[in-house]
Design a protein around this nucleic acid. Structure first.
Length: 318
DNA sequence: AAGACGGGGCC
DNA sequence: GGCCCAGTCTT
Protein backbone atom coordinates (compact mmCIF):
# COMPACT_ATOMS: atom_id res chain seq x y z
CA UNK A 1 0.00 0.00 0.00
CA UNK A 2 2.83 2.35 0.78
CA UNK A 3 4.39 2.06 -2.68
CA UNK A 4 4.29 5.62 -4.05
CA UNK A 5 1.60 6.51 -1.53
CA UNK A 6 1.85 8.65 1.57
CA UNK A 7 1.53 7.10 5.02
CA UNK A 8 -1.38 9.42 5.83
CA UNK A 9 -3.33 8.19 2.83
CA UNK A 10 -2.60 4.55 3.61
CA UNK A 11 -3.42 4.30 7.32
CA UNK A 12 -7.23 4.00 7.11
CA UNK A 13 -6.96 1.57 4.20
CA UNK A 14 -4.44 -0.50 6.11
CA UNK A 15 -6.67 -0.67 9.18
CA UNK A 16 -9.69 -1.79 7.19
CA UNK A 17 -7.70 -4.19 5.07
CA UNK A 18 -6.16 -5.91 8.06
CA UNK A 19 -9.54 -6.17 9.76
CA UNK A 20 -11.08 -7.72 6.66
CA UNK A 21 -8.10 -9.98 5.85
CA UNK A 22 -6.33 -10.72 9.14
CA UNK A 23 -4.32 -13.65 7.78
CA UNK A 24 -2.57 -14.45 4.54
CA UNK A 25 -4.92 -17.43 4.13
CA UNK A 26 -8.01 -15.27 4.37
CA UNK A 27 -6.61 -12.87 1.82
CA UNK A 28 -5.72 -15.78 -0.46
CA UNK A 29 -9.24 -17.21 -0.24
CA UNK A 30 -10.99 -13.91 -0.93
CA UNK A 31 -12.45 -13.01 -4.31
CA UNK A 32 -10.39 -10.50 -6.25
CA UNK A 33 -13.45 -8.26 -6.47
CA UNK A 34 -13.56 -8.12 -2.68
CA UNK A 35 -9.86 -7.20 -2.50
CA UNK A 36 -10.40 -4.46 -5.07
CA UNK A 37 -13.40 -3.22 -3.10
CA UNK A 38 -11.16 -2.78 -0.05
CA UNK A 39 -8.62 -1.00 -2.23
CA UNK A 40 -11.19 1.29 -3.86
CA UNK A 41 -9.91 4.89 -3.90
CA UNK A 42 -6.30 4.10 -3.02
CA UNK A 43 -5.10 3.91 -6.61
CA UNK A 44 -2.48 1.77 -8.35
CA UNK A 45 -4.88 -1.16 -8.36
CA UNK A 46 -2.31 -3.58 -9.71
CA UNK A 47 -0.95 -3.54 -6.17
CA UNK A 48 -4.22 -5.01 -4.95
CA UNK A 49 -4.17 -7.75 -7.57
CA UNK A 50 -0.51 -8.41 -6.82
CA UNK A 51 -0.88 -8.71 -3.06
CA UNK A 52 -3.82 -11.02 -3.62
CA UNK A 53 -1.80 -13.23 -5.97
CA UNK A 54 1.17 -13.11 -3.62
CA UNK A 55 -1.03 -14.26 -0.75
CA UNK A 56 -2.25 -17.17 -2.87
CA UNK A 57 1.32 -18.18 -3.68
CA UNK A 58 2.45 -17.92 -0.07
CA UNK A 59 -0.61 -19.79 1.12
CA UNK A 60 -0.67 -22.58 -1.42
CA UNK A 61 2.94 -23.00 -2.50
CA UNK A 62 5.00 -21.82 0.46
CA UNK A 63 3.02 -23.35 3.30
CA UNK A 64 1.82 -20.00 4.54
CA UNK A 65 5.37 -18.87 5.36
CA UNK A 66 6.82 -15.75 3.76
CA UNK A 67 10.29 -16.02 2.24
CA UNK A 68 12.86 -14.45 4.53
CA UNK A 69 15.42 -13.59 1.88
CA UNK A 70 15.45 -10.81 -0.70
CA UNK A 71 15.61 -13.10 -3.74
CA UNK A 72 12.71 -15.24 -2.56
CA UNK A 73 10.55 -12.25 -1.75
CA UNK A 74 11.23 -10.66 -5.13
CA UNK A 75 9.71 -13.71 -6.77
CA UNK A 76 6.34 -12.60 -5.44
CA UNK A 77 4.27 -10.27 -7.62
CA UNK A 78 4.43 -6.64 -6.53
CA UNK A 79 7.54 -7.11 -4.41
CA UNK A 80 10.58 -5.45 -5.93
CA UNK A 81 14.01 -4.68 -4.57
CA UNK A 82 12.90 -2.08 -2.08
CA UNK A 83 9.93 -3.95 -0.62
CA UNK A 84 11.96 -7.14 -0.37
CA UNK A 85 14.72 -5.27 1.48
CA UNK A 86 12.20 -3.61 3.74
CA UNK A 87 10.56 -6.90 4.71
CA UNK A 88 13.87 -8.65 5.28
CA UNK A 89 15.33 -5.88 7.39
CA UNK A 90 12.22 -4.74 9.26
CA UNK A 91 10.47 -8.05 9.82
CA UNK A 92 13.44 -10.40 10.18
CA UNK A 93 16.07 -7.84 11.22
CA UNK A 94 18.46 -9.22 8.65
CA UNK A 95 20.98 -7.13 6.72
CA UNK A 96 19.34 -5.92 3.52
CA UNK A 97 19.72 -2.46 1.99
CA UNK A 98 16.80 -0.29 0.99
CA UNK A 99 16.41 2.69 -1.30
CA UNK A 100 13.04 4.39 -1.57
CA UNK A 101 11.88 7.99 -1.86
CA UNK A 102 13.22 9.11 1.53
CA UNK A 103 16.53 7.28 1.60
CA UNK A 104 17.05 8.04 -2.07
CA UNK A 105 16.92 11.75 -1.27
CA UNK A 106 19.04 11.40 1.87
CA UNK A 107 21.72 9.25 0.21
CA UNK A 108 21.86 11.35 -2.94
CA UNK A 109 22.42 14.44 -0.81
CA UNK A 110 24.95 12.82 1.48
CA UNK A 111 26.91 11.73 -1.59
CA UNK A 112 26.34 14.96 -3.48
CA UNK A 113 25.16 12.77 -6.36
CA UNK A 114 23.82 15.20 -8.94
CA UNK A 115 22.98 12.71 -11.70
CA UNK A 116 19.56 11.19 -12.24
CA UNK A 117 19.10 8.93 -9.21
CA UNK A 118 16.66 6.72 -11.10
CA UNK A 119 19.05 6.02 -13.97
CA UNK A 120 20.98 2.77 -14.02
CA UNK A 121 24.10 4.52 -12.78
CA UNK A 122 22.21 6.39 -10.08
CA UNK A 123 20.59 3.20 -8.83
CA UNK A 124 23.97 1.48 -8.75
CA UNK A 125 25.49 4.35 -6.76
CA UNK A 126 22.65 4.59 -4.27
CA UNK A 127 22.14 0.87 -3.66
CA UNK A 128 25.89 0.44 -3.18
CA UNK A 129 25.86 3.20 -0.63
CA UNK A 130 22.82 1.73 1.10
CA UNK A 131 24.65 -1.58 1.35
CA UNK A 132 27.88 0.04 2.52
CA UNK A 133 26.36 2.04 5.37
CA UNK A 134 24.24 -0.83 6.68
CA UNK A 135 25.43 -1.89 10.16
CA UNK A 136 25.68 -5.48 11.34
CA UNK A 137 23.50 -4.83 14.36
CA UNK A 138 19.87 -3.79 14.13
CA UNK A 139 19.85 -3.19 10.38
CA UNK A 140 16.04 -2.95 10.45
CA UNK A 141 16.05 -0.13 12.95
CA UNK A 142 18.88 1.52 11.05
CA UNK A 143 16.95 1.45 7.77
CA UNK A 144 13.81 2.78 9.39
CA UNK A 145 15.75 5.52 11.17
CA UNK A 146 17.29 6.71 7.91
CA UNK A 147 13.93 6.63 6.17
CA UNK A 148 12.54 8.74 8.98
CA UNK A 149 15.47 11.15 8.71
CA UNK A 150 14.83 11.43 4.97
CA UNK A 151 11.13 11.98 5.54
CA UNK A 152 11.50 14.57 8.29
CA UNK A 153 14.63 16.73 8.35
CA UNK A 154 15.86 15.87 4.86
CA UNK A 155 12.64 16.93 3.17
CA UNK A 156 12.41 17.78 -0.54
CA UNK A 157 11.72 21.51 -0.37
CA UNK A 158 12.80 22.67 3.08
CA UNK A 159 15.55 20.48 4.52
CA UNK A 160 16.43 21.41 8.10
CA UNK A 161 20.18 20.92 7.80
CA UNK A 162 20.87 22.83 11.04
CA UNK A 163 19.14 20.10 13.01
CA UNK A 164 20.46 17.24 10.93
CA UNK A 165 22.74 14.82 12.81
CA UNK A 166 24.68 13.92 9.67
CA UNK A 167 25.10 17.32 8.04
CA UNK A 168 28.79 17.06 8.94
CA UNK A 169 29.11 14.21 6.41
CA UNK A 170 26.79 15.70 3.81
CA UNK A 171 28.37 16.85 0.57
CA UNK A 172 25.19 18.59 -0.54
CA UNK A 173 25.21 20.61 2.71
CA UNK A 174 28.88 21.38 2.29
CA UNK A 175 28.23 22.56 -1.26
CA UNK A 176 24.84 24.09 -0.45
CA UNK A 177 23.20 22.06 -3.21
CA UNK A 178 20.48 20.49 -1.07
CA UNK A 179 17.72 21.90 -3.25
CA UNK A 180 19.28 20.73 -6.52
CA UNK A 181 19.64 17.17 -5.26
CA UNK A 182 18.14 14.75 -6.01
CA UNK A 183 17.80 15.73 -9.65
CA UNK A 184 14.54 13.95 -10.44
CA UNK A 185 13.26 13.80 -14.00
CA UNK A 186 10.29 16.01 -14.73
CA UNK A 187 6.86 14.47 -14.76
CA UNK A 188 5.23 13.93 -18.12
CA UNK A 189 3.17 16.79 -19.44
CA UNK A 190 -0.53 16.78 -18.60
CA UNK A 191 -3.03 16.41 -21.41
CA UNK A 192 -6.61 17.62 -21.15
CA UNK A 193 -9.26 15.17 -22.26
CA UNK A 194 -13.04 15.25 -22.19
CA UNK A 195 -15.02 12.12 -21.52
CA UNK A 196 -18.67 11.22 -21.26
CA UNK A 197 -20.03 8.92 -18.59
CA UNK A 198 -23.58 7.72 -19.10
CA UNK A 199 -25.65 6.03 -16.44
CA UNK A 200 -27.93 3.97 -18.66
CA UNK A 201 -31.12 3.08 -16.77
CA UNK A 202 -33.52 0.21 -17.27
CA UNK A 203 -36.07 -1.12 -14.80
CA UNK A 204 -34.74 1.15 -12.11
CA UNK A 205 -31.23 -0.25 -12.41
CA UNK A 206 -28.12 1.22 -13.98
CA UNK A 207 -25.63 -0.33 -16.34
CA UNK A 208 -22.13 -0.93 -15.04
CA UNK A 209 -19.18 -2.34 -16.95
CA UNK A 210 -16.19 -4.01 -15.42
CA UNK A 211 -13.05 -2.44 -16.83
CA UNK A 212 -10.76 -4.96 -18.42
CA UNK A 213 -7.08 -5.77 -18.24
CA UNK A 214 -5.09 -3.24 -20.19
CA UNK A 215 -7.44 -0.41 -19.36
CA UNK A 216 -6.93 2.11 -16.63
CA UNK A 217 -8.78 1.05 -13.45
CA UNK A 218 -8.67 -2.55 -14.62
CA UNK A 219 -11.01 -4.69 -12.55
CA UNK A 220 -13.04 -1.74 -11.28
CA UNK A 221 -16.58 -1.03 -12.37
CA UNK A 222 -17.71 2.10 -14.15
CA UNK A 223 -20.66 3.53 -15.97
CA UNK A 224 -20.55 3.46 -19.75
CA UNK A 225 -17.73 5.78 -20.54
CA UNK A 226 -15.66 6.98 -23.47
CA UNK A 227 -13.57 9.86 -24.67
CA UNK A 228 -15.16 12.71 -26.60
CA UNK A 229 -13.33 14.40 -29.43
CA UNK A 230 -13.15 18.16 -28.96
CA UNK A 231 -15.69 18.75 -31.72
CA UNK A 232 -18.25 16.38 -30.25
CA UNK A 233 -18.37 17.32 -26.57
CA UNK A 234 -21.86 18.79 -26.86
CA UNK A 235 -23.03 16.66 -29.75
CA UNK A 236 -25.97 14.70 -28.32
CA UNK A 237 -26.53 12.45 -31.37
CA UNK A 238 -22.86 11.53 -31.30
CA UNK A 239 -23.10 10.46 -27.67
CA UNK A 240 -26.23 8.45 -28.36
CA UNK A 241 -24.51 6.72 -31.26
CA UNK A 242 -21.38 6.04 -29.22
CA UNK A 243 -23.42 4.42 -26.47
CA UNK A 244 -25.13 2.27 -29.07
CA UNK A 245 -21.82 1.14 -30.55
CA UNK A 246 -20.40 0.49 -27.14
CA UNK A 247 -23.32 -1.33 -25.56
CA UNK A 248 -25.70 -2.35 -28.32
CA UNK A 249 -28.44 -0.37 -26.61
CA UNK A 250 -30.56 2.42 -28.02
CA UNK A 251 -30.92 5.17 -25.47
CA UNK A 252 -32.97 8.22 -24.75
CA UNK A 253 -30.33 10.63 -23.47
CA UNK A 254 -31.32 12.85 -20.55
CA UNK A 255 -29.76 16.16 -19.57
CA UNK A 256 -26.19 16.43 -18.33
CA UNK A 257 -26.33 15.81 -14.59
CA UNK A 258 -22.86 16.96 -13.60
CA UNK A 259 -19.36 17.71 -14.79
CA UNK A 260 -16.52 16.22 -12.78
CA UNK A 261 -12.86 17.13 -13.01
CA UNK A 262 -10.31 14.50 -12.24
CA UNK A 263 -6.55 14.23 -12.65
CA UNK A 264 -5.17 10.79 -13.39
CA UNK A 265 -1.67 9.82 -14.44
CA UNK A 266 -0.84 12.25 -17.24
CA UNK A 267 -4.40 13.31 -18.02
CA UNK A 268 -6.72 15.91 -16.67
CA UNK A 269 -10.18 14.57 -17.35
CA UNK A 270 -13.32 16.61 -17.66
CA UNK A 271 -16.11 14.10 -17.24
CA UNK A 272 -19.57 14.96 -18.49
CA UNK A 273 -22.09 12.82 -16.63
CA UNK A 274 -25.43 11.93 -18.18
CA UNK A 275 -28.41 9.78 -17.34
CA UNK A 276 -30.15 7.92 -20.12
CA UNK A 277 -33.00 5.46 -20.48
CA UNK A 278 -32.43 2.30 -22.38
CA UNK A 279 -35.35 1.98 -24.76
CA UNK A 280 -34.32 -0.84 -27.09
CA UNK A 281 -31.53 -3.16 -28.16
CA UNK A 282 -29.63 -5.98 -26.51
CA UNK A 283 -26.40 -5.80 -24.61
CA UNK A 284 -23.20 -6.46 -26.52
CA UNK A 285 -21.33 -9.69 -25.87
CA UNK A 286 -17.72 -9.85 -24.84
CA UNK A 287 -17.95 -7.30 -22.07
CA UNK A 288 -18.77 -7.77 -18.42
CA UNK A 289 -22.01 -5.87 -17.81
CA UNK A 290 -24.31 -5.69 -14.84
CA UNK A 291 -27.57 -3.89 -14.12
CA UNK A 292 -27.32 -2.48 -10.61
CA UNK A 293 -29.84 -0.66 -8.45
CA UNK A 294 -28.58 2.55 -6.85
CA UNK A 295 -28.86 1.03 -3.39
CA UNK A 296 -26.35 -1.65 -4.44
CA UNK A 297 -23.61 0.62 -5.80
CA UNK A 298 -21.69 0.12 -2.58
CA UNK A 299 -21.19 -3.54 -3.40
CA UNK A 300 -19.02 -2.65 -6.38
CA UNK A 301 -15.50 -1.30 -6.51
CA UNK A 302 -15.89 1.77 -8.69
CA UNK A 303 -13.40 4.22 -10.09
CA UNK A 304 -13.24 7.43 -8.07
CA UNK A 305 -15.22 9.36 -10.66
CA UNK A 306 -17.64 6.48 -11.00
CA UNK A 307 -18.11 6.59 -7.25
CA UNK A 308 -18.75 10.35 -7.29
CA UNK A 309 -21.22 9.97 -10.12
CA UNK A 310 -22.97 7.13 -8.30
CA UNK A 311 -23.32 9.33 -5.23
CA UNK A 312 -24.84 12.15 -7.26
CA UNK A 313 -27.19 9.67 -8.85
CA UNK A 314 -28.33 8.28 -5.51
CA UNK A 315 -28.92 11.79 -4.19
CA UNK A 316 -30.81 12.90 -7.28
CA UNK A 317 -33.30 10.11 -6.75
CA UNK A 318 -34.79 12.02 -3.84
C1' DA B 1 15.39 3.73 -20.98
C1' DA B 2 10.81 5.28 -20.94
C1' DG B 3 5.92 4.84 -19.85
C1' DA B 4 1.99 3.36 -17.32
C1' DC B 5 -0.17 3.19 -13.31
C1' DG B 6 -3.94 6.96 -8.97
C1' DG B 7 -5.14 9.81 -5.88
C1' DG B 8 -4.47 13.12 -2.32
C1' DG B 9 -1.80 16.51 0.38
C1' DC B 10 0.80 20.55 0.37
C1' DC B 11 2.43 25.09 -1.05
C1' DG C 1 -1.05 24.19 -10.85
C1' DG C 2 3.04 21.76 -10.00
C1' DC C 3 5.56 18.67 -6.99
C1' DC C 4 5.84 14.65 -4.35
C1' DC C 5 4.71 10.27 -2.13
C1' DA C 6 7.70 3.74 2.16
C1' DG C 7 7.82 1.40 -6.44
C1' DT C 8 6.87 -2.15 -9.72
C1' DC C 9 6.00 -3.93 -14.06
C1' DT C 10 5.69 -3.70 -19.02
C1' DT C 11 7.20 -2.29 -23.40
Amino acid sequence: MLQQTTVVAVVPYFERFMTRFPTVQQLAEAEESEVLKQWEGLGYYSRARNIHKAAQIVSSQLGGIFPSDVAGLQELPGIGRYTAGAIVSFAYDKRAPIVEANTLRLYARLLGYDGDPRSKEGQQVLWSFAEAVLPKTQPGRFNQALMELGASLCSPKLPDCEQCPVSGFCRAFRDQTQLEIPQLAKRAVITDVTEASIAVRRNNAYLLRRRTTGERWAGLWDFVRFELAAATTDDVPHIVESVHQRTGLKIDLGPQLAELKHGVTRYRITLKCFVADSVAGTLRDGEEWQWVKAAKFDDFALSVTGRKFAKLLAESLF
